[in-house]
Nucleic acid binder design. Sequence first.
DNA 1: CTTATAAGG
DNA 2: CCTTTTAAG
Lengths: 267, 267
Amino acid sequence: MSFEISTVNVNGLRAAARKGFVEWLGSTGADAVCLQEVRAEPGQLPAEAGAPAGWHVVLVPSAAKGRSGVAVYSRAEPDAVRTGFGVEEFAGSGRYVEVDLGAVSVGSLYLPSGEVGTERQEEKERFMAAFLPYLVRRRAEVEAAGRELVVCGDWNIAHREADLKNWRANRRSSGFLPEERAWLSRVFEEVGLVDVVRDLHPGVEGPYSWWSYRGRAFDNDAGWRIDYQVATPGLAARAVKARVERAASHDLRWSDHAPVSVVYGAS
Amino acid sequence: MSFEISTVNVNGLRAAARKGFVEWLGSTGADAVCLQEVRAEPGQLPAEAGAPAGWHVVLVPSAAKGRSGVAVYSRAEPDAVRTGFGVEEFAGSGRYVEVDLGAVSVGSLYLPSGEVGTERQEEKERFMAAFLPYLVRRRAEVEAAGRELVVCGDWNIAHREADLKNWRANRRSSGFLPEERAWLSRVFEEVGLVDVVRDLHPGVEGPYSWWSYRGRAFDNDAGWRIDYQVATPGLAARAVKARVERAASHDLRWSDHAPVSVVYGAS
DNA sequence: CTTATAAGG
DNA sequence: CCTTTTAAG
């Protein structure tokens, strides 16, 4: 049986729920949906967003109110849930959760956004340094058990020039720094995980998954591809279809990111 | 010649301007309009609200950004402008301004709102204690010069039971405390200024000028009369008509207060 | 419930 | 530009 996974940074689930997330969730064919930047605790959400009928919800908020927060919504009940990735500094940061759904472990990642020359960029780099060994370990564990892993989410890094519209102007911008791009290359080349959407669509621009709310970024399609599904090779080989659900108009947007969805065929 | 004065707490002029204040200002027949809670500096306002054609604007913001702020809009250019009332603690608080328009001085007052048991209630009481002597002095000065005075604004006190819908439930609420009501009585009885709207309409409930945004206060007309025109007896005797411009529907509200307007006949 | 603010993105 | 928080009302 095939299954579909979607991932989207909702930029505040309370606001997204008012603007169209609930309708999107009702119409998606996905079996699992990974969310980032929920920016709310379960009790702050309306039931149709926080406990929708037909879905199991695992929500890991940040200890800091109104910040970060990741979730996995799944039609099947998860067999297991793991919160965080075992690094003290990022415990309680609401940036990673992983659920087991049959033979696949599905992670929802919200990698910190940075700003060059600030402490937030240093935090982003510490996160990257801490998360890479976790990926190495998880790949080994998962494959030793005959299972697969996909880490979905907002990785806050565009990998190559084809992954953002204005790459020349952004060579010194956080999210496209050489050291960030090199780190992502290590995830793909050293750890051996696969950028599923790029694997299915080599040699195309984008598809972008984030457009700033500032200026005319959305109208000009001045986007970035920073939301990924990063999978073990065995699972990546089963990916048959990928799409980014870019809103048809500004009025239909309910986040500054768009859902990135992948259909995986039967094993 | 008769003239009309309106007073209204706009609860943030930027928000009010988006919701209907500009249209109201364009349709009013008033010669002078006193505003309270402007909550903006002139440069933060769109021209149609901050510098409308046909009006002279005197705006006194608070030193604290986004707080308080009073203004007088007048069709004639003021002959003089006085800011504050000469008490150090409330200098820069954006709570009082007075302009001279011919033989009448028009003040715009935003008396602090309080909350029982808090420092804000103590500040309200210090303001009251400091403002009363100012009124005494100004009445004497104005009348000695053969002029009149009207202090318009949000006094944040309902005087009598007829001045709020739920007076029993609010006997211990800031805005209807015995000491606040007694202070207003002193303004009327000792200082000898006149509550113009009540003088024209004795023995009626209200008319209320403020309805909380919380709950169903507006729909239930659970209002308070806390916005006043308080005038020297000579001017009060010339008042011929008063009204509160309560919005016809929730959708037409552009503030939690409504304009209180008085027509004064020729002297 | 609504207006501001500030920080975050 | 947008969503949060916090303070104020």
